[in-house]
Amino acid sequence: MESHELLQKLNRLESLIIGTSKQILNVDDVVNYTGFSKSYVYKLVHKNILPYSKPNNRTLFFTKKEIDEWLLQNKSKSISQIEQEAINYTNSTKK
C-alpha cells in the first residue's frame, strides 16, 4: 500500500474517531460518518431528503441522531423476525 493511501486511511480513521463523540456534524463530518461523497450529501440536502439546519443561510449542520435515524429508515425485517411475528400473532389469536 502506498504511503499516500495509508495517510488517507489514517486521516479517515482519525475523523471517524473524533466524529463519533460529536453530536452536531458539518458536511465533511457527514461524509466521513456515512461514507457518502460530498456531492451526494449536497444532492440529498438540495432535494430536502437529508435533515439539516442552515443558520444564517450559510453553513450546513446536521445532528448525528437525525442522520442515524435517516440512515435506518425503511428497515427491512429478516426472515426470522417475520417468522417470529407470525408465531406471536398466531399464538395471540388462539386465545
Rank of each mutant, 00 (worst) to 15 (best):
P51C: 12
R58K: 15
V27I: 12
I18R: 14
N11F: 01
S53R: 07
V31C: 07
S15L: 02
D68M: 05
D29I: 06
K54E: 06
I24D: 05
N57G: 15
R58A: 13
F36T: 08
S39M: 10
L16Q: 14
D28A: 13
R58E: 10
Y33Q: 05
K47G: 05
G35K: 03
W70V: 06
G35E: 02
N32L: 09
L50M: 11
T20F: 07
T20W: 01
K54P: 00
I67N: 04
L60Y: 15
E14A: 14
V30A: 04
K38A: 07
L60N: 08
D29V: 04
V27M: 04
Y52D: 02
S53I: 09
I49T: 13
R58M: 10
K38C: 08
Y40Q: 09
K65W: 03
N57H: 13
R58T: 10
L60E: 03
K22M: 08
I17T: 07
S39P: 02
E69P: 00
E14W: 06
K43R: 13
F61V: 09
P51A: 10
L50G: 09
D68R: 00
N56G: 03
S39E: 05
E14H: 14
K38P: 02
L50E: 01
K22A: 10
P55M: 04
V27L: 07
D28C: 09
S21K: 00
L16E: 11
Q23D: 15
I49Y: 11
P51W: 05
L60I: 02
T59I: 15
Y40G: 02
L60F: 15
G19C: 11
N26G: 13
L44D: 12
L50W: 02
N56V: 11
P55I: 00
I17L: 13
V31M: 03
I49V: 13
D28N: 15
N26E: 10
G35T: 04
N57F: 13
S15H: 05
K64E: 05
K43D: 11
V30C: 04
E66W: 05
I49G: 08
Q23F: 01
K47A: 11
W70H: 14
N57L: 12
V30K: 02
S15Y: 00
T63M: 04
N57A: 12
V31S: 01
D68Q: 07
I24S: 03
F36W: 13
L13F: 06
F61K: 15
F36H: 13
V30N: 04
I67E: 04
E14Y: 10
K22H: 12
V45M: 03
E66Y: 09
E69F: 03
F36G: 04
K47W: 03
L16G: 14
V41Q: 06
K65Q: 14
K43L: 11
T34C: 09
V41D: 11
Y42N: 13
L44I: 04
V41H: 05
N57D: 15
D29Y: 03
H46G: 10
F36P: 02
E69L: 12
E66D: 15
I49P: 08
